[in-house]
Amino acid sequence: TETREFDNEEEARKEAERLRRKGQDVQIRKKGNRWELRRT
């Protein structure tokens, strides 16, 4: 599992969408005042 953190939700969602188009399974969750993007 690979995780990346983003400062805002929009960036996290854009990156998640990009990875999903490549066929990756991605989850986003709020972590304090940041957003965590998890690739499984």
Score class of each variant (00 low, 15 high):
K14F: 08
K14E: 13
K14T: 10
F6S: 01
T1N: 12
Q27M: 10
K31E: 06
V26Q: 01
F6K: 01
T1H: 12
N33L: 04
E10N: 08
R21E: 12
L19Q: 05
E2P: 09
T3Q: 08
Q24M: 14
R13W: 11
E5G: 06
E10P: 05
R20N: 06
K14A: 14
R18T: 05
F6G: 01
L19M: 12
G32D: 08
R29G: 05
T40L: 13
E15H: 07
E2M: 13
E15D: 03
Q24L: 14
N8G: 04
D7Y: 07
L19Y: 06
T3H: 09
R13T: 10
R34F: 09
G32A: 01
K30G: 03
N8K: 05
E17H: 08
R29D: 06
F6T: 01
E9G: 02
K22M: 15
E15S: 03
R20V: 06
F6N: 00
E11Y: 03
I28Y: 02
E15Q: 04
E2V: 13
R29K: 11
E17D: 12
A12E: 00
E5A: 07
A16K: 04
R20I: 08
T3I: 14
Q24R: 05
D25V: 13
G32N: 07
R4K: 11
L19I: 05
R18L: 10
E11L: 06
Q27N: 07
I28K: 01
G23D: 04
R38L: 15
R34A: 05
R20H: 07
E36A: 00
K14G: 07
K30Q: 07
E2Y: 12
E2I: 13
R34Q: 09
E5L: 14
Q27K: 07
W35F: 04
Q24Y: 15
T3N: 10
E10W: 12
D7I: 06
E15N: 03
Q24S: 07
R34S: 06
G23Q: 02
R38T: 15
L37D: 13
V26D: 01
E10Y: 10
T40Y: 09
R21V: 09
T3C: 15
T40V: 14
D7H: 06
G32S: 01
G32C: 03
E2D: 11
T3K: 09
F6I: 01
A12I: 02
R39Y: 15
R38E: 15
Q27P: 00
R4V: 13
G23I: 00
E10Q: 10
Q27T: 13
K30H: 03
E15A: 08
E17R: 09
L37W: 01
G32L: 00
I28Q: 00
E17L: 07
I28A: 03
E9F: 15
K22Q: 14
R39G: 15
E15W: 08
F6R: 01
R39A: 15
R39H: 15
V26R: 00
A12F: 01
I28D: 01
E2K: 10
G32R: 00
A12G: 02
L37M: 04
L37Q: 06
E9T: 01
K30A: 06
R13A: 08
E5Q: 09
E15R: 02
R4H: 10
R13G: 04
D25H: 14
N33A: 04
R20D: 02
N8I: 05
R38W: 10
E15M: 08
R18Q: 09
T1A: 13
R13H: 10
V26H: 03
E17S: 08
R39M: 15
E9D: 02
E36F: 05
K22D: 13
R21Y: 05
E2Q: 11
L37F: 00
K31N: 13
T3Y: 13
A12Q: 00
R18D: 07
E2W: 14
I28G: 01
E10M: 09
T40S: 11
K14H: 10
E36G: 00
K30T: 04
E15G: 03
R18V: 08
I28T: 02
D7R: 05
G32Y: 00
T1K: 10
I28F: 02
T3W: 15
D7L: 07
R38H: 15
R29L: 13
N33D: 14
Q24W: 15
Q27L: 09
K30P: 04
V26A: 04
A12K: 00
N33H: 04
D7S: 06
L19H: 04
Q27I: 14
R4P: 05
T1Q: 11
V26N: 02
I28H: 01
T3A: 11
D7G: 05
E5D: 09
R29Q: 11
R29A: 11
R21H: 08
E5T: 12
D25K: 12
K14P: 00
R39F: 15
W35V: 02
K31M: 07
K22N: 13
E17V: 07
E2S: 11
F6C: 04
R18G: 05
D7Q: 06
R13N: 12
G23H: 04
D25R: 11
E10R: 07
T3D: 07
E15I: 05
E9V: 10
N33F: 03
E15T: 05
G23R: 01
R39E: 15
E17Q: 08
E5H: 10
K31P: 01
Q24T: 08
R13Y: 13
T1P: 13
R34V: 06
R21L: 12
R39N: 15
G32F: 00
L37K: 06
I28L: 10
E36W: 03
D7K: 06
R18F: 07
K14L: 11
E36M: 02
R38D: 14
V26T: 05
W35L: 03
E10H: 10
A16R: 04
E17M: 08
D25F: 12
K14M: 12
I28C: 05
K22S: 13
R18C: 13
R39I: 15
I28W: 02
D25I: 13
L37C: 09
N8C: 08
R18E: 09
Q27R: 07
T40E: 09
E15K: 02
E15V: 07
R38Q: 14
R4F: 14
E11S: 07
K30V: 05
K30R: 09
A16S: 04
E9R: 07
E2A: 12
A12W: 00
Q27E: 14
E11Q: 08
K22I: 13
K30S: 05
I28S: 01
E10S: 07
G32M: 00
E10L: 10
E5S: 12
E9L: 14
E11M: 06
A16V: 06
L37R: 03
L19G: 02
R29I: 14
A16W: 09
I28P: 02
D25P: 08
Q24A: 10
E36S: 00
R39D: 15
A12D: 00
N33G: 09
K31S: 09
N8P: 00
E11G: 04
Q24G: 06
E2L: 13
R21P: 01
E9A: 05
V26I: 09
R21F: 06
L19W: 07
R18I: 09
D25E: 12
E9W: 15
R29N: 09
K22W: 08
E2H: 13
E15F: 07
G23A: 02
R29M: 12
K31A: 09
R38S: 14
R4E: 09
G23T: 01
T1I: 13
L37H: 03
A16H: 04
R38K: 12
G23M: 02
G23S: 02
R39T: 15
R18A: 09
R4G: 05
N8S: 14
R39P: 15
G23K: 02
G23L: 02
A12R: 00
K30L: 03
E5W: 15
R4Y: 14
E2N: 10
R4Q: 13
R20E: 05
R4W: 15
R13E: 11
E36H: 02
N8R: 05
K31Y: 02
E10G: 07
K14Y: 10
L37P: 12
R21S: 13
K30C: 07
L19R: 04
V26K: 01
K22L: 15
W35I: 03
R29Y: 10
D25N: 12
N33W: 01
R4M: 14
A16M: 12
K22A: 14
E15Y: 07
L19T: 02
A12C: 14
E15P: 00
Q27H: 11
Q24P: 01
V26W: 12
T40W: 08
G23P: 00
